[in-house]
């Protein structure tokens, strides 16, 4: 493998969001993931990189996929994994986030993988503990490993082995306002040179995203023919209550990715979805399971990306510089 950034050293003890990373950081973590990808295809699916280290999955919000993916990623690096679920708000328990984190850290933890329903909770956590903190999704803020695995999937599919996405245009469709996946994708894609079009009802499309360098649209049919990737976000049914859109039927008509609508897209367009899919609402089954779909590749790539995140951040934590490619 070529090493264009030989002098580069990964500097981040925490992975809190893609907004904090430079293009060089992004390429480095993606290249590291590329190096770790084949661990999953060996007969012995394990490397000793984190042997003797302890990773805790601290999840304040329900999750099956991300949690399992982080668990497996840590296991493949030979770390011990502790699963920890914390329910409800910390106010109700009489214990603050900081208390919880410090109690867990007292067990001798090297990295906390945290998911929380409140934006910014991982940042507050990182300020109160000594170990690495990896954000596995915080409120409506960021989901950096999802962003990384989406970008990784696009780059691999398009043969961009240098992870330079100049000239690529990505559409992200759906509830942009409340999506941490959208935010991480926007930051990562923009830094690597891709164009981003955000598509959704105006009630779910804050104008602030234009300041982040995105094009905003509420016309999927107009956008579809000119994009290389279409990333469909999951419809959050609780948004119905806030009347962000009038009905699922209407949403699906305007923003659902159907077989018929796919006729307008480029023939080789990549269809992605962070899962779990509401089949027939944001994506029709025939599209989700069709030749353009990269949904299962996303899941597989998630593992490699999370291994890279754990490996790089804990390396900084231990004071050992492990900046080179894996």
């Amino acid at each position: 493998m070529s090493r264009p950034d030989d002098d580069y050293r990964w500097p981040h003890k925490h992975l809190l969001g893609l907004e904090d990373l430079t293009p060089a950081d992004l390429r480095h973590i993606l290249r590291t993931a590329r190096g770790l990808e084949d661990v999953s295809t060996r007969s012995v699916k394990k490397v000793p990189a984190l042997r003797g280290k302890v990773v805790v999955n601290l999840f304040f919000e329900d999750s099956t996929r991300t949690r399992a993916s982080f668990h497996l990623a840590a296991s493949r690096l030979s770390a011990d994994v502790l699963e920890f679920s914390a329910k409800g708000s910390s106010v109700a328990k009489g214990e603050t986030l900081r208390d919880t984190a410090r109690n867990i850290e007292a067990m001798g933890i090297d990295a906390i993988v945290v998911r929380h329903q409140q934006s910014g909770a991982p940042h507050q956590l990182a300020r109160s503990v000594q170990c690495s903190v990896i954000n596995a999704g915080d409120g409506q803020h960021e989901h950096p490993t999802q962003g990384l695995l989406d970008i990784y999937t696009v780059a691999r599919r398009l043969g961009r082995d240098d992870f330079d996405l100049t000239g690529i245009t990505v559409a992200i469709v759906g509830d942009i306002a409340h999506s941490r996946v959208a935010r991480s994708n926007v930051h990562g894609l923009r830094k690597l040179g891709a164009g981003v079009v955000l598509v959704g009802p105006t009630t779910l499309l804050p104008r602030g995203f234009a300041d982040m360098g995105c094009e905003l649209s509420h016309d999927l049919d107009e956008v579809l023919p000119r994009v290389d990737v279409v990333n469909m976000l999951r419809v959050q049914f609780e948004r119905l209550q806030s009347q962000a859109f009038p009905s699922v039927r209407e949403y699906s008509r305007f923003f659902g990715l159907t077989v018929k609508r796919m006729e307008k897209a480029k023939r080789e367009v990549i269809v992605m979805h962070p899962g779990p899919i509401n089949r027939g609402i944001e994506v029709e089954s025939a599209v989700a399971d069709g030749p353009n779909s990269a949904v299962l590749a996303q899941v597989a790539n998630g593992l490699a990306v999370r291994m890279a995140a754990l490996y790089l951040t804990t390396g900084v934590n231990a004071g050992v510089n492990t900046g080179g490619n894996a």
Binding site: E19, S119, G120, D138, G139, Q140, H141, E142, A177, R180, R183, P206, R207, G208, F209, D211, M212
Partner: peptide
């Protein structure tokens, strides 16, 4: 309310 709140997810 504004771009920063949007960025921060608040």
């Amino acid at each position: 309310a504004g771009t920063l709140a949007t960025r921060l997810g608040l």
